[in-house]
Design a protein around this nucleic acid. Structure first.
Lengths: 197, 197
DNA sequence: AATTATTGCAACCGGTAGTTGCAATGTCGG
DNA sequence: CCGACATTGCAACTACCGGTTGCAATAATT
């Protein structure tokens, strides 16, 4: 009997994988999840389309792989700046940076898409989940300093107001998030959270 | 020479127009702008697809017409409730109602779509423009009552926080906007706007 | 050198968007 | 009432795009 040795033969080229994945991200940023075309990605990556289809049988998996690849290298976490104002401004900058990059916008749109498939939706929401985790630390720090009483205004409300305002600004109004505008948002939040009386 | 009389012949049926436009809105709500299919709309409206193509040569024009048709009948305006809290809560309800209806969601997504064509984008942004106009009245009333100093926190910041928070809640987190949650948002806004010191 | 898997290539299949020519229908003007 | 004319429906067709398959060429591992 002829056993097929799994390790023999020509291995798959990593440069090819890299080219395909980055080409996928480019196409994603330009045409969105709905508009992504595998033949076009193949041309972008200077690779035959069959190669892509063999590695990732469905568009689904390809997109998921590409997104997962990017998310691995995004670890600029929410560190302690010493004050609630500083923490919130940093968070604004993080959210803005993500939403102002073409890829980040595509990701956000994918997450909001009605027919986002399970895996893409999961991956898309991963950063927000991670963000939410860091935000809990932020809240704990603020509560310890006495700047925020979480029992009064819950963290998810505040997170929605912060990220949502940036979404509205960038995605709907298509205006840049200037430092002054970001400070305006944070200012309202700070005053709104300030425990008094 | 034979002049073609423009008024002769069979006129176009308004019921057909209506059927096509509502079918378009349905398809839009179900499949989004990218996924809309004219043959499917035709079947939905019990109309031959050629009829649609003859009236609206491009998809562009069809969706623009359908959106324009809906917007004409949305005039539940932002009336004076007597207090800033009441006005903001009403605004929250208006935004929520829009975003929680399938058609409204499709509209919002269309407005945020990267390759939203000029006409669709213009029409989509029209309601926000109209909303912004009413919001200016709201601000003026609040300023008159001494509840809000617009010089301190500009209306566009507050509007972005309010609508953005609902967008984030509904589109990203896919959670319902409960009265309690809406009140949480308004509460932070009220405290944040309150002029003092 | 032999084996084995990958890659590229070209042709092919299937489905869907959009077009066209024609017959049938309905409405307006005389 | 009748003729003219635009609209609607219908069916066939074209064109394009996504995805598949079979085969030859290539490269790496043993």
């Amino acid at each position: 009997m002829r056993t097929t040795r799994r390790d023999a033969g020509r291995p798959r080229g990593e440069p090819i994988e890299h080219a395909i994945l980055t080409a996928t991200l480019d196409d994603l940023a330009e045409f969105g999840v709905e508009g992504l075309s595998i033949p076009r990605v193949a041309e972008r990556a200077s690779v035959n389309k069959t190669t892509i289809y063999r590695r990732w049988p469905t568009r689904e998996q390809l997109v998921a792989a590409a997104l997962a690849a990017t998310l691995e290298q995004t670890s600029a976490d929410l560190c302690d700046t010493g004050s609630l104002r500083g923490d919130l401004l940093l968070l604004m900058r993080l959210v803005t940076a993500r939403l102002e990059s073409p890829t980040g916008r595509a990701l956000a749109r994918a997450a909001m898409s009605e027919q986002a498939s399970a895996s893409v939706a999961a991956i898309s929401q991963d950063p927000s989940v991670r963000a939410q985790a860091s935000v809990l630390d932020l809240v704990a720090r603020a509560a310890g300093r006495g700047d925020w009483d979480p029992a009064r205004s819950s963290p998810d409300v505040v997170l929605a107001m912060l990220t949502g305002s940036v979404m509205h600004r960038v995605l709907m109004e298509r205006l840049p998030v200037t430092p002054a505008w970001a400070e305006g948002v944070v200012e309202v939040l700070l005053r709104g959270l300030e425990p008094r009386g």
